[in-house]
Simulated assay, not measured.
Amino acid sequence: MTEAIEGRLKELGIELPVAAAPAANYLPYVITGNLLFISGQLPNENGKVAVTGLVGADVDVPAASRAAELCAINILAQAKAALDGDLGRIKRVVKLSSFVASAPGFTEQHIVTNGASNLIANVLGDAGKHARAAVGMAALPFNASVEIEAIIEIEA
């Protein structure tokens, strides 16, 4: 299964980065039983937040969707680190919770979040189909436009 996932990443032109270290007093992930909880991931690319500002004012929906894709890539990088490099241990992505820094009146958080949902499903197939929440926020850490956390069922 790991080879299939790595193959899909390669087909999509995605190279997973090294998992980012926490920016404050928390763990990047926690495993309890057969669940992997991944802390909120920002749209980091090349070591910095790639998309900043309020969606609907500073950032348009396509750019915010790309930010959500970057968050998903960073979720997969954290999962790979948590699972000792074996993404084949992922049984199912249970839930994504997406937080979108939104200008007043912006109501397309669900469209922005599709960037992450589509990427996860494309990489993991049926195991990537998940429940989710897409919530508007006044602001996010480091002025990021999007932050996404994940709950993943794994093989113990």
Rank of each mutant, 00 (worst) to 15 (best):
N25A: 14
A19H: 13
N74C: 02
L76V: 07
E11R: 12
L83D: 11
D58R: 01
N114E: 15
L76Q: 05
V100Q: 01
L83A: 04
D126M: 10
I38G: 11
T52M: 06
R66P: 02
N44P: 03
K91H: 14
I31D: 00
V61L: 07
F106K: 08
N118V: 05
P104I: 04
C71M: 10
T32H: 12
T113K: 11
S65M: 10
G33N: 13
L35T: 07
A101P: 06
A63G: 06
D86H: 03
E108R: 14
G128D: 11
V94E: 14
K95W: 03
N46H: 15
L124E: 07
A19G: 10
T52D: 05
G53P: 08
E69W: 06
Q78L: 02
N74Y: 08
A19L: 13
E11I: 05
Q78R: 13
A19E: 15
I90S: 12
N122F: 08
V61W: 01
A82H: 06
R132N: 01
D86A: 04
G53D: 05
N74H: 13
G47P: 06
A116S: 12
I14D: 07
R66K: 13
N118D: 03
H110A: 03
I14P: 10
V30H: 12
S97N: 15
F37Q: 14
T52A: 05
A24C: 14
N118P: 02
I111F: 03
L27R: 13
R92E: 14
H130R: 09
G105R: 12
R92Q: 15
C71W: 03
V123L: 09
N34K: 09
L36D: 00
A103Q: 11
E15W: 03
A103V: 02
I14A: 05
A131L: 12
